[in-house]
Design a protein around this nucleic acid. Sequence first.
DNA 1: TTAGAGTTGGCCCC
DNA 2: GGGGCCAACTCTAA
Length: 553
Amino acid sequence: MGKRIVVWFRKSLRIHDNIALAEALQEGNVEALYCIFVLDPWFVQSGKVGTNRMQFLLESLQDLNQSLQKHNSRLLILQGNPLQVFQQQFPKWEVNSLYFEWDSEPYALERDSLVKKFCEEHSIHCSSPSGHTMYNLQNTLRKCKNGTPPLTYSSFLNLIKEMGEPNKPIDPLNNRSSLPEPRKVIEEEKEKGIPLYTVPSDLQNLLEDGKSPYITPSKEEHTPFYGGETEALKRMKAYLSHKKQVCNFEKPKTGPCDISPNKNTTTVLSPYIKFGCLSIRTFFHAIMEVYKSAGTYSKPPESLLGQIYWREFFYTIAYFYKKDYESMSTNPICIQIPWKNSDKDLETQKKDPHFIAWKNGQTGFPWIDAVMHQLRKEGWMHHLARHAVACFLTRGDLYISWECGRDVFDELLLDADPALNNGNWLWLSSSAFFHQYFRVYSPIVFAKKVDPNGDYIRHYLPVLKDMPKEYIYEPWKAPLVVQKRIGCIIGQDYPKPIVDHEVVMKNNMTMMKQAYAEKRYGKPLQIAVSVSKNKRPIEQQGQEETSTKKLKN
DNA sequence: TTAGAGTTGGCCCC
DNA sequence: GGGGCCAACTCTAA
């Protein structure tokens, strides 16, 4: 009797450079291969994932299914809590081996450790190779001085130099034209006479019980970005074909106000990398190919390659601090800043009228509101636009905790990724990594610089489409006669500014100065595990091997 | 212990 | 568009 193998797709929604699939296929004598994705109804109904991202995920699953079908296989969707699903399904399928890509996110580590325990108890071989980052994060941490990852990008780059180039992408199919069939599923379908474990056709039918909270966006409502590996590879090739643009890429010089449907100034590959529709190693080596053929090219941190090093930087740090990374009060590298209402719980903080205005794009500052409207509509905005609205919410204007803003991005961004999202919010709020809190984005001056004609504002805020250029950034300054003429009364059709930027900015800076003087940092709930130079994997090290990270409070 | 650097601010001058 | 200044932060390498 041959082996029955399950490949569990979570991220890595792709065939190319799929490490788990590759390992699985290296097993000889395979009788049945089950390529599965587990859709957890709890997660679907949690409200944590916006419609755009759920749609993107569904499209990615559909694309993966089609790719597998070309190889005589298919993607099986199982519904429920993963552990419970496996307890039920694995005995039925007589599974011998389980393969999935290792996931560094705190909730995933917890979930996966339960799955591994289940496999151990049932003598099921379980393997979870690293594939979502360029390097195995545990190896990176072993290279760190004192076992603690550096907090600056430049010293992280030194570490990267030591690591050498990441591995070349692999072809898991290795010239194989067909994959082993999911035998028991085919038998079960024959018996019942209906298709089973199929990929949902649309968001309304996401859940078996029909209780999907989502409605499929119409063609007009759909974001400009469609999910899936096919789309990812197409997009990457198209961008990299403009070799000059790739080699001259300098992030701060790319425009946050590109209103062309494809947003050509940056790659917009982040959603594809987030879901693993595009392998980060494939992207790395594809960029390197362009660089080699050109000879001269820009350098990190601003270069295109520099951008994926930023991802690796935040991933490494997030993995080191685990769950403590994600909240101000527990993060040992996060300066404790007494944000507005931050003595109350997060849900109470989110009831603040200023916060509600910010998240709904109703602050009265057109450029800030335009960015928030783009986020809600398209699930994506340029990195600099994210900077400006994050600065506005936190230290710049509203003085509201970065955790509130983080949650809005986490819901609405197609590329929402905890390591990067938390990292960037820590950065922008001057809570960690970045400390020059006196550098503040002006919601007016910065807008004039990046959107010199106000076209971006008019595109995302049609209510201001006829506002003359001289008032587009500060419409409250438009004379009433102008407001009447264009049919947009400020305070009625579009809000008045909720704060006086010049006043609150100076006030906030004084409070920031005071918070910095107090030098208080988050208190970790769990003690970070140090990674000594010994060879034991980090997960096997006991909690008693405490961190050497200086606890500053 | 200390100098220098730090992904991408705004302002003013040239 | 480029440079120096604003007033002043922390991290890192030496």
